[in-house]
């Protein structure tokens, strides 16, 4: 078994309104920053032992499907690295 970190990033699907991101963007603009758009995302870092990176990714995907993301409004992606 090898120690991996699976990073699951959960984002709202394109087209789904994100009022918190809009408020954050307005706040940045009030501070004088110039930007075209702002998207927010939740990042989950999962430390787990697995036989391979694929195995770790598969388990992280199941966790995303079952709890971390809501398929009605979210997309997600998974990145697996060997833990340091």
């Amino acid at each position: 078994m090898t120690a991996f970190t699976a990073t699951v990033t959960v984002r709202l699907k394109r087209g789904v309104l994100d009022p918190e991101a809009e408020t954050t963007q307005r706040s940045l603009e009030r501070l004088g920053f110039d930007l075209n758009d702002l998207r927010s995302a939740d990042v989950f870092e999962l430390d787990l032992d697995a036989d391979s990176a694929d195995d770790a990714a598969e388990r992280a995907e199941e966790m995303a499907e079952r709890l971390l993301a809501n398929p009605t409004i979210h997309d997600y992606d998974i990145e697996v690295t060997e833990a340091e």
């Binding site: 309104l17 009022p19 918190e20 408020t23 409004i73």
Partner: peptide, 9 residues
């Protein structure tokens, strides 16, 4: 469906 953050935040 899903219930999520109000438009007003």
């Amino acid at each position: 469906g899903a219930f999520t953050t109000n438009e007003s935040a």
